[in-house]
Computed example of a mutant assay.
Amino acid sequence: MSAPTTTPRQFALVAGEASGDLLASLLLEGLQARWPDMHAAGIGGPRMLARGFESWWPQEKLAVRGYIEVLRHYAEIAGIRRQLKARLLREWPQLFIGVDAPDFNLDLEAGLRGRGLKTVHFVCPSIWAWRADRVDKIRAAADHVLCIFPFEPALLAKQGIAASYVGHPVANVIPITPDRAAARAALGIEADATVVALLPGSRRSELRYLASRFFSAAALMQRARPALKFIAPVLPALRAEVEQLLVASPMAGQVQLLDGQSHTALAACDVTLIASGTATLEAALFKRPMVIAYNMHSLSWRLMHRQQLQPWVGLPNILCGEFVVPELLQDAATPEALAEATLAWLAAPDRVAALQQRFATLHDELRRDTPTLCADAIQKVLQS
Rank of each mutant, 00 (worst) to 15 (best):
G98A: 14
L156R: 15
L26Y: 09
A193P: 14
W128L: 00
V381W: 12
P289N: 06
L22C: 07
D100M: 12
F96E: 01
L281T: 00
V325Y: 09
P175C: 07
V242D: 01
W128K: 11
S262P: 00
W312P: 01
A193R: 15
L299T: 07
A110R: 15
I274L: 05
G79L: 09
W130V: 05
Q244V: 05
D21F: 05
W130A: 03
V255P: 10
A101E: 01
F53S: 07
V135F: 08
L228Y: 03
M304G: 14
L258Y: 13
L89H: 09
A41W: 12
I68Q: 08
V247I: 07
R208S: 09
F230W: 04
L112F: 12
V196H: 06
C374K: 03
A24C: 10
Q356S: 10
D350H: 12
I138Q: 05
S298D: 03
V99W: 05
D270W: 04
A197C: 11
W345S: 11
W312G: 00
L27I: 03
P58S: 04
A191Y: 14
D259W: 14
A348I: 00
L108V: 02
G160S: 08
M296W: 00
T370Y: 14
V14Q: 02
Q310D: 01
A354V: 06
D376V: 04
S126T: 14
L155N: 02
A141H: 02
M1A: 15
H144E: 01
E152T: 13
L281G: 05
Y74W: 13
M251Y: 08
A191M: 10
L31D: 06
G114M: 04
P289Y: 04
D133H: 14
Q254K: 12
A101Y: 11
G42H: 07
H144C: 04
T372A: 15
L343T: 08
T361A: 12
W312D: 04
P175I: 08
R113N: 10
H73C: 08
G45V: 08
D376Y: 15
I161K: 06
L71F: 15
A12Q: 06
P200N: 03
S276C: 01
P178Q: 05
P311N: 09
P4W: 11
L245P: 00
A41G: 04
A86I: 03
M1H: 14
W92N: 04
P102A: 13
C374Q: 01
A248F: 07
T342Q: 01
A78Q: 12
I176A: 13
S262N: 04
C374S: 07
W312M: 12
E336K: 12
M290F: 06
L62A: 02
P150I: 02
L31A: 11
A377L: 03
F53D: 00
A86H: 13
P335I: 07
G160M: 03
G16W: 06
F323M: 13
R82P: 04
G188E: 05
F11Y: 13
